[in-house]
């Protein structure tokens, strides 16, 4: 099914503290002719409660899927956590009748029902599968050939492989391909697919930040001019926490961390002011100079 109309599911982290991702994603999707319809009402996808109650997670995710079914539209999410959760639950409830009945008992109490007639996709999957690489390349008016960047996919867009079924978690190519569509070069580096550590923040900040530091060290080693992410949590780990990591471990990075739609937006000729660059924590002025946006 290829469509150009989606219900946009923002999740919790993006409206809470990652506005630049939403601002830039809406801009590039408009340019690509993708229509976004707002969710009629919202509740968390359920992922944050999975550790304490798998049942609560299933119900929360199914509520959103049921709402989307009523609208007759597929869901697009910006957060891989939301995408992974909605996809997994959609598949589970479609296949497992007993679980579906159990969840529907809860949903019927509030006039909803999961039927299994819709789909959920992450932005990156929509870009590569529904919009298509050619169309993306067509919108690039300012190729960023002067840039060498690194990418970080984030776990939930790829794993667990069996349930997500998108790209290859051991050697993911989609984000690289999308980055290279902007004209920028995407560098390989050590342990590219390793987790950023975000889910362990609040349980052990030290362990979590060590993970992010490890990755930043590997990215620095290949002299990437920027790091490109597609997950709000990974972005918080590398951008919001970069200064904290520098202080804590006596390191210097100064690596700007961009949401992928910000990078694509620049290549589309959209001004940085319109792409939420002022929301970023790591200084981007050198990067802007390099691409001639001063």
């Amino acid at each position: 099914m290829t469509t150009n109309k989606y219900l946009i599911f923002l999740g919790c982290a993006i409206p809470y503290r990652v506005a630049a991702f939403e601002i830039s994603a809406r801009k590039i999707l408009a340019k690509l002719g993708v229509d976004l319809v707002e969710m009629p009402e919202f509740n968390c996808c359920g992922l944050p409660l999975d550790p304490v109650s798998h049942e609560a997670m299933l119900i929360l995710a199914a509520r959103n899927l049921a709402l989307a079914e009523q609208k007759g539209l597929p869901i697009i999410t910006l957060c891989p956590g939301c995408a992974g959760t909605l996809k997994k639950v959609n598949r589970l409830l479609k296949e497992d009748k007993a679980s579906r009945e159990e969840v529907n008992k809860h949903l019927r109490e509030v006039g909803l029902e999961f039927k299994g007639t819709t789909d959920a996709k992450h932005l990156m999957q929509v870009l590569i599968e529904d919009v298509g690489l050619e169309k993306i390349k067509d919108t690039v008016v300012k190729p960023l050939t002067m840039l060498k960047v690194a990418e970080h996919n984030g776990c939930h867009i790829l794993r667990p492989k069996e349930y997500i079924g998108f790209d290859d978690p051991e050697d993911p190519k989609t984000l690289k391909t999308l980055i290279e569509a902007t004209g920028a070069k995407c560098l390989d580096y050590l342990d590219e697919t390793e987790c950023c550590g975000a889910p362990s923040v609040g349980i052990s900040d030290k362990v979590a930040l060590q993970l992010a530091r490890d990755k930043l060290n590997n990215i620095k080693m290949v002299s990437a001019q920027a790091l490109i992410t597609i997950c709000p949590f990974c972005h918080i780990m590398y951008d919001t926490n970069e200064l904290r990591i520098e202080k804590m471990f006596n390191e210097t990075y100064g690596i700007p961390v961009l949401h992928y739609p910000q990078l694509l937006g620049l290549a589309m000729g959209i001004k940085p002011e319109e792409l939420g660059f002022s929301e970023l924590k790591v200084n981007v002025s050198d990067l802007m100079k390099q691409i001639g946006e001063v």
């Binding site: 919202f42 509740n43 049942e55």
Partner: peptide, 27 residues
């Protein structure tokens, strides 16, 4: 959000959320 031109955030339906989660142990 308003000043940056983003649409209003969809609201949660607290009553409906609570009701659908009724009977879930942790909740």
């Amino acid at each position: 959000r308003e000043s940056t031109g983003l649409p209003p955030l969809p609201k949660g339906n607290a009553e409906s959320i609570c009701k659908s989660l009724k009977g879930v142990d942790f909740v």
